[in-house]
Write a protein that binds this DNA or RNA. Sequence first.
DNA 1: CGTATTTGACCCGCGC
DNA 2: GCGCGGGTCAAATACG
Length: 298
Amino acid sequence: MIYLYMVEMAYMEEGDLEAIVKGYSCSGDAFSGESSGGFSPSFCLPDDTANCLYEHEMDTTGLDELGELYKPFYPCCTQNLTNSVSVPKDDKKQLTHGCLLANGSRADHIRIPESKAKSKKNQQKRVVELVKEDNLLSQSDAWAWRKYGQKPIKGSPYPRSYYRCSSSKGCLARKQVERNPQNPEKFTITYTNEHDHEIPTRRNSLAGTTRAKSSKPKPSITKKSEKQVVSSPTSNPVITSGDESSVVVQVMEVPEMSTYQTTGEIVGTGNNLPTDLSSDFDEILNSQEFINGYLWNY
DNA sequence: CGTATTTGACCCGCGC
DNA sequence: GCGCGGGTCAAATACG
């Protein structure tokens, strides 16, 4: 089983976090669950648990408890829907967006203030920190993700990979994956925006296939000699840049989905991680199997 | 040929 | 206004 911490960042003012944690409030991400492989959506934490988690890691709980934990919290997850609005980057006039709810239904055309929508900072973010590297396979969600970028991140020796939803054209869902610089065994996955479509029943023809890493160096005309490794690891990436004033910390124990089967193995690298881009980490990140993590039978 | 990945360039928000 | 850093674009390339 997998234990992960889920941090939801919604449109809330400073101080809301405490209120939420103390008051057992729900995050308002009514449909966050679909990004976790059809998993159940947000749930509310007991007061002491939430506080505990916000400060430090928590010991694990039993797998079967999770399902029971979720049930009582489902109803609250249909509230505060407007907090979960995705923000289309380029849609400057209409600024509406369809939202997929956890139960599969949709909530369309939720209007958000233009000024707010313009800001990337106000995009909904949901951060998931994986505890174990090998859990990445199971944690990976059922959406099809396509990598569109990778950047070295200041303060972290590990690059961040950017993925977008490839299941549907125009879907604004984004996903970032990076290794925790303080604990290389952990990965942080950040989801931005929500899918505006159902979970695909089948993926693109090549989705899920593993591309063999090219043995020969890729010819590049304008290639720089820039080294993409940056130094001096700093803060915990889970609760990132200071502006995310309002954070809901959730703990999810994610059972491995027995209906799916992982298609690849990740060789654990532990703490002896190479820092260059040809490291195992990059192979993991670059593997579509890692991104999806499931074997799809047609 | 269609789709995915790589990676330098570009864009944009933010702090100074 | 400028520089920095994060996020995205898109051409080149790889793969089935």
